[in-house]
């Protein structure tokens, strides 16, 4: 149960990384930092400015989309075709954003108001936090929205075309530059969305982004880079693996299971469950 909920959360957190890896061939190290920015923005809009939490979430995502566009233009665009370069840049960027967050929001956890502090009672002696259920189901909902956007809209089609073959896409009149720009913004907004949805359950501190980035990497390697379906499967698998691992082997090692799976998959099946190799 906890595994499935955490799985949906992981899937949403990884969706942006997967999109960027697929369309731009960029491994985005700073994804987790966009996640915490999303959480901080929604905290400030809802707590300090008193906006309605849902509205605050939307505004926060909008902001992040713009930040994403800006970062793509200034930092990422010059590194296309040089995966090492872009990885180094996003790695440094993650440290920079982490410290900006530390200075502007302080080291203490920020928790936007939760919808509910209660738990639901299931059969027998089993309880589960309502807020965590909300986080899980809204993650799943947002993930499905994203999936439909990529699969069913014209814009999604263009994104897929660029991901598959940028030259071909260019040849049929798609501006691959613009598609990449928007994809990056979208990915950053997705990270922000995860932050908005999760922070009432797991309050964020400036260093919360790092574990999220790492688990997103595990998920996209599982699912194959750039595959959205794989992303969901990878997320669920990671959630379950961590949960069973900590229940039956050791709670202290729950994160390790993901990393071991990552190394195993890279060594034996680098394309992941569905996807394609970079």
């Amino acid at each position: 149960m906890n595994g499935l909920v955490m799985g949906a959360i992981y899937a949403l957190s990884a969706a942006g990384v997967s999109l960027v890896a697929g369309v731009m061939r960029v491994i985005n190290f700073s994804h987790g930092e966009f996640y915490i920015l999303g959480a901080y923005f929604s905290y400030y809009f809802s707590v300090s400015l008193g906006l309605n939490p849902v509205l605050a979430a939307v505004v926060a995502m909008g902001f992040l989309f713009l930040i994403g566009l800006f970062i793509e233009r200034t930092l990422i665009r010059s590194t296309y075709g040089q995966p090492m370069q872009s990885m180094i840049i996003t790695f440094i960027l993650s440290i920079v954003l982490q410290n900006i967050a530390l200075i502007s929001f302080g080291p203490y956890p920020k928790k936007p108001p939760a919808f509910s502090e209660d738990s639901v009672h299931f059969i027998g002696d089993f309880n589960y936090g309502i807020q965590r259920l909300i986080a899980g189901s809204s993650s799943l909902f947002l993930f499905c929205l994203f999936y439909l956007f990529i699969k069913k809209t014209r814009f999604g089609l263009k994104i897929r075309a660029v991901a598959q073959d940028p030259q071909m896409a260019e040849a049929v009149g798609i501006h691959s530059k613009r598609i990449r720009l928007v994809s990056f913004g979208l990915a950053v907004a997705l990270a922000g969305a995860a932050g908005v949805v999760l922070s009432p359950t797991f309050p964020v501190v400036p260093t919360s982004g790092e574990p999220l980035t790492l688990s997103a990497f595990v998920v996209i390697v599982f699912g194959g880079m750039g595959s959205i379906r794989g992303c969901l499967m990878g997320g669920l698998l990671l959630g379950l693996a961590e949960n069973f691992g900590s229940a039956y082997i050791s709670t202290m090692y729950s994160q390790v299971f993901g990393f071991i799976l990552l190394i195993g998959i890279i060594l034996f099946r680098p394309t992941g469950i569905y996807g394609n190799k970079i």
Partner: peptide, 25 residues
Amino acid sequence: RLCLPLGGTYLSLVTLSFAEILRIV
């Protein structure tokens, strides 16, 4: 030996996981 043949990105991801596993252990 294990991951250099796979190439750049994969080496980075494996070394990253390796470092994290080590830290946790």
